[in-house]
């Protein structure tokens, strides 16, 4: 019997209340002046009215230099900083997801405890944990120092982080696979390498693809931030306008990022629905993704 099964329902409730009270005590210990928290709402309203709103949509207009030569003229938004920055962020996310996935698969195969002895799997896990322990923005600072400003630093930073993060997801998926195909391969005399290539990867392919798509979505969201430290992408422009206190332009960028993130999330849901484990599950339709369930009823 599992430990949690033995706890009665009233005990659960008491435990939850105690945990909540404990967290309040910790918070109270950290905050000296609660009055500052109450001033926050007022500050936000002032900041919003005087600096943020309305957004300055000039970020969607072509830059003064270099001169925009795009034809027809309604496409000239492609010369805007918002478009250029966003496209660069998407490119960084895509390339780093591809490189990260390629590099993480061998490491995750080594890290899986059902395929390797403990010393191999724990050594590989050590590297994966090291890559994952720093957030992508810290890796971006590190690579900006190494290779200078620009998207290359962004690609390297996101790739390293992807290896650590995706590697963990992958080895957990591999460890979750049933033992019987591995037993059958071992009995047949297939080598570890052959088993990994011909049994483990095909068997967990759906999970691996779904995780890679999720990682692209994740990298895109984080790619908007790494530009702040000079690693390319739309974050560069956000940082620029923050320095000049042009918050109305910053909010315009943030709204654009929000819309694109939402769009990529929706595409990711649709793409991942092709790789769900059970074929009996109804596949998401575009309508079901973009509209709430109530609007989907015929």
């Amino acid at each position: 019997m599992k430990y949690f099964d033995r706890i009665s329902r009233p005990s659960w409730l008491v435990t939850c209340v105690l945990i909540f009270l404990f967290s309040i005590i910790i918070l109270n210990g950290m905050i000296n002046d609660w009055g500052r928290a109450s001033q926050g709402i007022g500050n936000l309203i002032t900041f919003f009215n005087e600096s943020l709103w309305p957004p300055d949509w000039s970020v969607l207009e072509p830059q003064a230099y270099p001169v925009c030569t795009v034809y027809p003229s309604f496409m000239d938004f492609t010369c805007s900083t918002a478009w250029i920055g966003m496209l660069e962020t998407i490119k960084i996310a895509f390339v780093s997801t591809v490189f990260g996935t390629i590099l993480s698969i061998p490491l995750s195969l080594l890290a899986a405890r059902n395929l390797n002895p403990s010393w191999v799997s724990y050594s590989s896990r050590f590297f994966l944990a090291a890559f994952r322990s720093l957030p992508s923005i810290i890796w971006a600072i590190f690579f900006v120092i190494l290779v200078g400003f620009g998207p290359l630093a962004g690609v390297l930073a996101m790739t390293v982080y992807t290896v650590g993060y995706l590697g963990k997801l992958q080895y957990e998926a591999i460890e979750g696979m049933t033992k019987v195909p591995l037993d059958a391969s071992e009995a047949m005399g297939l080598s570890k390498f052959e088993t990994a290539i011909k049994v483990v990867i095909p068997e967990s392919a759906n999970d691996l693809i779904s995780q890679a798509i999720f990682m692209f979505e994740y990298n895109f969201r984080h790619g908007t931030v790494i530009g702040i430290v000079g690693a390319g992408g739309i974050g560069y422009y956000i940082n620029l306008y923050l320095k000049f206190l042009q918050y109305d332009k910053v909010i315009a960028y943030l709204i654009i990022i929000f819309v694109v993130v939402l769009f990529i999330d929706f595409i990711s849901i649709k793409a991942r629905s092709y790789f769900t484990e059970e074929i009996d599950l109804p596949r998401s339709t575009w309508k079901s993704i973009f509209f709430p369930p109530g609007l989907n009823k015929r």
Binding site: A184, S185, A187, P202
Partner: peptide, 15 residues
């Protein structure tokens, strides 16, 4: 390849 084994749960690569 000397030993062929058909386990009870078959051990096939389902995908």
């Amino acid at each position: 390849g000397e030993l062929g084994y058909v386990p009870q749960s078959l051990g096939l690569v389902r995908h």
